[in-house]
Write a protein that binds this DNA or RNA. Structure first.
Length: 587
RNA sequence: GCGGCGGUCGUCUAGCCUGGACUAGGACGCCGGCCUGCCAAGCCGGAGGUCCCGGGUUCAAAUCCCGGCCGCCGCACCA
């Protein structure tokens, strides 16, 4: 078989380990399973929680002066998804061949055969076009059936009335856009503003495969970062921190040429125009750091620019962050889109709400302006009941146009009315303007958490002397330590080990006690689920109160006083301390 | 969604072609006991299986046939 090499084996080994030890497995198994859904087991849920914590630290806590986290509902009314464009663009018109059963994109077929733009046509219109021009199945020549829409949005009903349609969110972004005004207010109106959210989304994929990589329901960690497009300096105040960070990038053109990624410093990618905006570049840098901190080496990560035809409807530049995986090659773990003002503008139009941000000038500016003054008495007498309409139309006119007409003594034509010059005048006024309203632009880094979890496991997987060692970064491991009595049948050792276990537990560590089987077997069990540290209580413990501490990755041990175990574990897990710094090496 | 291949204790698998002695066997893992002074040792005992689901053929189905579900691979799809 084609995948029988090492690569395929690794995938199988991860799946096997995940099922056996409780990282993840397919959902609803006892009922035969449903494609596209996965459960996380006890270890998987904890690992995911810790990955999310890292994300939260990288994107929110490190930038908390400008970035906040919110939670919004999973179910939204149809209006929201009309405004977002998902009802329109997240839908594919599909037509099926009645002979061979193959499915095709109806709009693509029509565009191809007739050379017309089929976008936006109704299914009925497309079906009619197909019949009229006798478009047939491009594969077998069979007759095509009715065009129907397949929408990737999960649909439901809000409340008892059938007309009240709701949709399960396909991304988190709309929650942030819809709540934008509130969040901005609660933060007293300042830009830049990052609104982050972590939550589950649903996409009704036509045929999901690839296990944890392509799910119908999954968790996204996402931020909408709003900034003033004209404020070059202030839009991304942390940029300097990462300006010399190296990213591997393939542009759209290079991808089409089949060229490999090039390495750029962040500032260089920006200067050369590879990345269109500083903010987009900065958050890609943060993404790079985050993924590396999951134990994935730099050479297994790169960013790929999406070509215009591949991009989502809202985006003007998008990069995917890819991580090497065994079976499916490069897997997209995050997407980085420049969404411009698309979403806020759409929501302003559809909802009528004012989602602009007031941008104060450093000093209020005095502006001389011409204003149209309407003589209401004249207009009223002339137009009677039509007067309010006429007045409104006059007010809306450009002052310089009115001035021009007046200078020539001509009547003003507006909205089908002729208004005599004596009904209007133009005056010059001085106004104090202290700022203006702008629609902020948005960049969006968005991560698939289950994909991060999967690639983290794959990159942590090692084999050593026929045993499996899951070398997860220490601070990601679901259990930080195991406590082992050297022998299981000596109550003094077991008791002493239990006391240490209780102490570590009360200090907030996630830790377990294992006293069954030989000591070697217990080390092996711990290695396999990725426990970084093992404390062993032996006979010397009973004499002088010292225990041994074993490193999962080197299998080396040091001896240290039991009383220092808590501190040593803390340094080992969270400060990256080397084992040798924590005690006396054992031979 | 199409086509190919597959689905047997927690895991990996034997059995399927050629239906019956299959009360579905083994290994690993798991649980209990013994043993064990540091890396999956040994001994004894034990639990664990809707043979993916439904239907059909047959005296008899894990085994043959049909449909469905799920998985893998290829094609299509994947804002």
């Amino acid at each position: 078989m084609r995948w029988a090499g090492l690569a395929g084996d690794l995938y199988d080994k991860i799946i096997d380990l995940a099922k056996r030890r409780g990282y993840f497995w397919p959902s609803y198994e006892i009922y035969g399973g449903v494609a596209g859904f996965y459960d996380l087991g006890p270890l998987g849920a904890e690992l995911k929680r810790r990955i999310i914590e890292k994300w939260r630290r990288a994107f929110i806590l490190d930038h908390q002066e400008h970035v906040v986290e919110i939670e919004t509902p999973m179910i939204g009314p149809s209006r929201v998804y009309e405004a977002s464009g998902h009802l329109e663009s997240f839908t594919d018109p599909i037509v099926e061949c009645t002979k061979c059963g193959r499915k095709f994109r109806a709009d693509h077929l029509i565009e191809e055969k007739l050379g017309i733009n089929a976008e936006g046509l109704s299914p009925e219109e497309m079906t009619r076009l197909i019949r009229e021009h006798d478009i047939r199945c491009p594969v077998c020549g069979g007759e095509l059936g009715e065009v129907r829409l397949f929408n990737l949005l999960f649909k439901t009903q809000i409340g008892p009335y059938e007309g009240n349609i709701g949709f399960l969110r396909p991304e988190l972004a709309q929650g942030m856009f819809v709540a934008f005004k509130r969040v901005l207010e609660s933060l007293r109106g300042r830009l830049p503003l990052g609104i982050a959210q972590i939550g589950r989304v649903g996409r009704n994929e036509i045929s999901p495969r690839q296990g944890m990589i392509r799910l119908r329901e999954f968790t996204i960690a996402e931020m909408e970062y709003f900034f003033d497009p004209e404020d070059e300096e202030g839009s991304c105040p942390w940029f300097e921190r990462l300006s010399s960070l190296q990213l591997r990038i393939v542009t759209c053109d290079e991808k089409k040429q089949g060229e490999p990624p090039r390495t750029y410093r962040l500032s260089e990618a920006l200067a050369k125009g590879v990345i269109m905006h500083k903010c987009l570049a900065y958050w890609m840098g943060v993404a790079q750091m985050l993924v590396e901190s999951l134990g994935i080496p730099r050479e297994d990560i790169y960013f790929e620019e999406k070509c215009p035809e591949e991009r989502a409807h809202y985006s003007s530049q998008t990069f995917d962050q890819l991580v090497r995986a065994s079976r499916w090659g490069w897997v997209e773990v995050s997407g980085h889109s420049y969404r411009g003002d698309y979403d806020l503008s759409r929501h302003m139009r559809y909802s009528g709400a004012d989602l602009t941000v007031f941008k104060p000038y450093p000093e209020p500016v005095k502006v001389r302006k011409k204003r149209v003054i309407v003589n209401k008495a004249v207009v009223g007498r002339l137009f009677k009941s039509e007067a309010p309409k006429v007045m409104e139309a006059l007010q809306a006119l450009d002052a310089s146009y009115v001035e021009e007409r007046l200078a020539r003594g001509e009547p003003i034509e507006v909205g089908g009315y002729r208004v005599p010059p004596e009904a209007v005048s133009v005056v010059e006024v001085e106004e104090k303007v202290s700022g203006r309203k702008i629609v902020p632009h948005v960049v969006e880094p968005s991560f698939g958490v289950e994909r991060l979890l999967y690639v983290t496991l794959e990159h942590a997987y090692r084999e050593r002397e026929g045993r499996v060692v899951l070398s997860l970064p220490r601070d990601l491991a679901p259990y930080q330590a195991v406590v082992l009595p050297l022998l299981e049948n000596d109550e003094r050792l077991v008791e002493r080990a239990r006391a240490l276990y209780e102490r570590l537990k009360s200090e907030g560590f996630r830790v377990y006690l294992d006293s069954s089987g030989s000591i070697g077997r217990r080390y092996a069990r711990a290695d396999e689920i990725g426990v970084p540290a093992a404390f062993t209580v032996d006979y010397q413990t009973l004499e002088d109160g010292t225990v041994t501490l074993r490193d999962r990755d080197t299998w080396r041990q040091v001896r240290l006083p039991e009383a220092r175990a808590v501190e040593a574990l803390r340094r080992f897990i969270y400060s990256g301390a080397k084992l040798e710094e924590l005690g006396e090496p054992l031979e």
